[in-house]
Design a protein around this nucleic acid. Sequence first.
DNA 1: GTCATTTGACCTTT
DNA 2: AAAGGTCAAATGAC
Length: 351
Amino acid sequence: MEDMGVNWEQKTLISELIQGMELTKQLRVHLKLASPFETKDLLVQKILSSYEKALLILRWGGSMGKPQTLAATTSVPEFTLSINGSPRSEDFDKDNQDYGDVSKKRKTVPRWTSQVRVSAENALEGHDDGYNWRKYGQKDILGAKYPRSYYRCTYRNTQNCWATKQVQRSDDNPTMFEITYKVKHTCFQGSQSVPPPASPEKQEQKNPDHGKHISHQQQQRSQQLLNFHKELRVNTEEFDNTQMQSPFSFPSTFGGIRSISPALDNSNLIGSFSPSYISPATPEPDYFSLPACTMINFNGNHNAYRSEYDSTEIISSNSSSSNSPVLDSVFSLNPLEIDPNFPFDTSEFFS
DNA sequence: GTCATTTGACCTTT
DNA sequence: AAAGGTCAAATGAC
């Protein structure tokens, strides 16, 4: 078991370094050419992410073992990176310390974070990560201006799906929301997850197995979207009232959503996917002075999403321990657990 | 009637 | 004890 972990680390480390080298070569070529800035920037981001991961592996040493599958990434594909995303290393850092003695530590569910900035229109739809969520609680958080909302998968009971997420408006930028996902979806909708449709009407076109006809479920979903829209509007109004001096300019935009996504057991994200797509948070706070997760680029559509959907995904925490029933059932899965529809194409990075 | 949200109470962890 | 997280009764929308 330990050997496996070491082997994995070595392979991943080598892979990351090689990739970083290759990307650097590509960048050099682009620098000679009159390539657009975005192309160069993208390469820089990829390079940084590769080295970040390599450093993480070195930091983690052999304490983490072989990574598990990146189950929870199902909501990630549509995200692109945010240069201005605020890194959240505290959780990661803290949780990382747990590896040495998990038995005495809190059995927290692994989670990962992503940060998304979306336009007014996409705020609604972008926030809809393709899953159906049910709110089950709200709590005022110490030191936070805004309450944190708790959501669980609508299909918890019917499909035994234990996915949850927390949504909290950012103190720093009220137009942003931080969403923390915990536990990957195991429900069918999750496996069918695709980037969210543009509107509730379009929901009819997705989920072929669920939505051949518009059902009450879809009505409920539409209601969810409306509710969220309403919530955003309220937030915007609050923002307008309290933050008018903000340097931000959101005439018709209520801003963005910043999401914190599920993390899987530690590094596991890294191993199951092409290293280019997942960028774990690093333990060092100042490490995030650079865009922490710059590698999440799917199919090279970086710019396409970036215009309206600017996000950063960060593994913010990893405190999972093998004695967590949830983790055992959800994360100890084979690689096929990864969303088959996960829209990334690794060939781009190795060509 | 069904399902979602709200919200105070309760539980868990630190 | 305090804070975060979850439960579940009350309530509302459809």
